[in-house]
């Protein structure tokens, strides 16, 4: 994982979203989630995205992660227009550029913490030894090197989410996306996770977009955006 030097490139526009629209069809009815969404995210920014349920924030996050496709508009990440990529290219792009943190951690219960963190690296050409080094570095950042051989069921919720964060950063992605990363945690564990995200931003210069319902969590970000009835405001 790259170190603070990366933060020196702050200011460069990393993500450009232009005239984005998402319309679902249910039966004969068209349901507009949002339209004309425009957004720029600069490298190193730590942004929070708030809004009521069904406002379209998770859909926006999924499109940005290359997991969903927009009805129209474009998303350019680090110079690459992902909205023009096919499924195969998008999967490869995701493995290199996206670190995703889930609300419910989504660790594989049959794998140890280290093996869970190693998963994204299985798609790279790194040797076993190099993968091990990356994994231990990532677990070191989240303070869980001593739990590397524990299975998820042997870890607390907060610890599991820290493993989830280590998995999100292990391949040094371009952007980290969090879908309510503290939503399933108690206050103390939530605070630990927010401390960690803040540290990733300030100390490692990572670009982070975090969807949250929690105003206190959003306060930890550098800026907060709001999505309401498909309209994004910053």
């Amino acid at each position: 994982m790259s170190h603070p030097s990366k933060a020196s490139t702050n200011g460069k526009v990393l993500v450009e979203i232009r005239d984005l629209a998402k319309v679902y069809r249910r039966g004969g009815e068209a349901i507009r989630v949002f339209e004309n969404v425009n957004l720029e995210i600069r490298q190193g920014e730590f942004l929070a995205l708030m809004g009521p349920s069904g406002s379209g924030k998770s859909t926006l996050l999924n499109i940005l992660a290359g997991l969903d496709t927009p009805t129209s508009g474009s998303v350019v990440v680090d110079g690459q227009e992902i909205t023009r990529m096919n499924g195969k290219r998008l999967a490869a792009w995701r493995s290199n550029h996206i670190g995703f943190i889930f609300q419910f951690y989504n660790l594989l219960p049959v794998l140890t913490a280290a093996q869970n963190v190693e998963l994204p690296l299985l798609l790279t050409s790194l040797s076993k030894k190099q993968r091990r080094e990356h994994v231990m570095t990532a677990l070191g950042i989240v303070g869980l090197t001593d739990r590397s051989e524990h299975f998820p069921g042997q870890l607390s919720g907060g610890q599991q989410q820290r493993v989830g964060i280590a998995r999100a950063v292990v391949s040094d992605p371009t952007i980290i996306l969090g879908d309510e990363p503290t939503g399933d945690l108690d206050a103390a564990s939530g605070k630990e996770i927010l401390d960690l995200l803040e540290r990733l931003s300030t100390e490692f210069g990572k670009t982070i977009l975090m969807v949250t319902h929690d105003a206190h969590a959003a306060e930890r970000a550098q800026a907060t955006m709001h999505m309401d009835k498909g309209v994004l405001s910053r």
Partner: peptide, 16 residues
């Protein structure tokens, strides 16, 4: 199903 979705989120392609 959830775990397979997670693998895909991490970049595992359909073929893999």
């Amino acid at each position: 199903i959830g775990e397979i979705a997670v693998l895909k989120t991490l970049g595992f392609g359909n073929g893999t």
